[in-house]
Design a protein around this nucleic acid. Structure first.
Lengths: 222, 222
DNA sequence: GTCTATAAAGCGATAGAC
DNA sequence: GTCTATCGCTTTATAGAC
């Protein structure tokens, strides 16, 4: 019976891992799954708002409408909960950006592809996904050990951007004297920083994305 | 006697506040002042490296060659220590940037002024000042209450950049269709992010600053 | 001024009732 | 599967010796 139970748990864990990160199909969710997701979403919200150091398990439980002790039925530890939030954050943005770029017509210019990528990343991080927002704020805050275990997901996303920029350069849309690594870090830095200042209502995501792209490609000089 | 003691303490605190943040005159430092500075510098180093959540007073004491309990002779609380590190970080960068820009010849173009500002900020944050580095990493991590109490210092620095950019626009060096607020945030975002990826040796600060300025003014398009 | 010992509190984690 | 009670560790902060 112990064996069966363990196997069932493993299967469930795998199913979870392959399930979409957000906006899960509203039906056919077992109660247990629903609660787990509710806790994860609550954790993302609280972490995004209060930061890593200032968030207690009791805050998360409260936000999720349950109790601190109950969280341990779904997660081994606070760290496991944090890491799952982080992972969902990156993979969500990554998938959204890749899907959007791949959906563009074959002849689309690299500049347009990169602009679309900027807009999608921004939109996902600033309004669409609590996990993406949480990841953005949290990643620099968590202890190095946690960051180490998550770094491969980040690297994969960084590599995707590297390829985007290299493609643009090969196509002659980026000058040869530009250091692509610095450009990538500079661009992602500007994008990531938006989470620290963006307030809904004032400027649209599209406007911000458009100016970011214009500045980077054309510059601001008269 | 209680009155005298309190007055003395206030005078000392004021002297501290006006003293240069870093590289203090090697002579004429009272032992008490020296220890206080040693603890502050140690705190900045540890906070910059391990982040807010992962830093204990005992880590700082250890780095400073003293004991956790001893810190309370110089600081009221962990928070006061953190806030002083943060404050020294911003004011240090601010002063350095302003001094550098003001030292430029009167006829210097706005583009050159902004490039100098970028370079100074980068240099100060990445290599010159532990306080600046600590502030960069810490500010987004500390509880909202601490951030609130520090926000005016940040705002003052942000306003300085706003004026730099407005000057450039008035002089016709920045196009009229550019939203200066977004540009400022984008630029400071790219600059602030360097602390997350910069490794000494590979590229010089000057190279990074130069490409940042080139990208922002001229763009990367071929 | 500096160190040691310890108090006080907060929080992650576990056990067990239901 | 969920809640309550509580343990035990960690860490900030204080008291007092030197």
């Amino acid at each position: 019976m112990g064996r069966v139970a363990r196997r069932t748990a493993a299967v469930k864990a795998e199913a979870r891992r392959q399930a979409p990160a957000e906006a899960p199909e509203p039906v056919a969710l077992r109660k247990s799954e629903a609660t787990r997701l509710r806790i994860l979403a609550a954790a993302a919200r609280v972490f995004a708002q209060r930061g890593y150091a200032d968030t207690r398990l009791s805050d998360i439980a409260n936000e999720a409408g349950t109790f601190a002790g109950s969280i341990y039925y779904y997660f081994e530890s606070r760290e496991e909960l944090v890491e799952e939030v982080l992972r969902l954050g990156v993979t969500g943005v990554f998938d959204a950006v890749r899907d959007r770029v791949e959906a563009l017509a074959p002849g689309t210019s690299h500049r347009e592809r990169i602009t679309a990528a900027i807009e999608t990343h921004l939109s996902f991080t600033l309004v669409q996904s609590v996990f993406a927002a949480a990841n953005q704020r949290l990643f620099a805050q968590v202890p190095g050990e946690i960051r180490q275990r998550q770094i491969h997901v980040h690297r994969a996303y960084g590599n995707y951007w590297r390829k985007l920029l290299e493609g643009a350069r090969r196509a002659g849309e980026i000058r040869r004297d530009i250091d692509l690594s610095v450009l990538r870090l500079q661009l992602l830095g500007a994008i990531n920083w938006t989470v620290e200042w963006y307030k809904p209502g004032k400027r649209s995501i599209e406007q911000i994305a458009a100016q970011l792209a214009t500045t980077v490609f054309d510059g601001v000089a008269a």
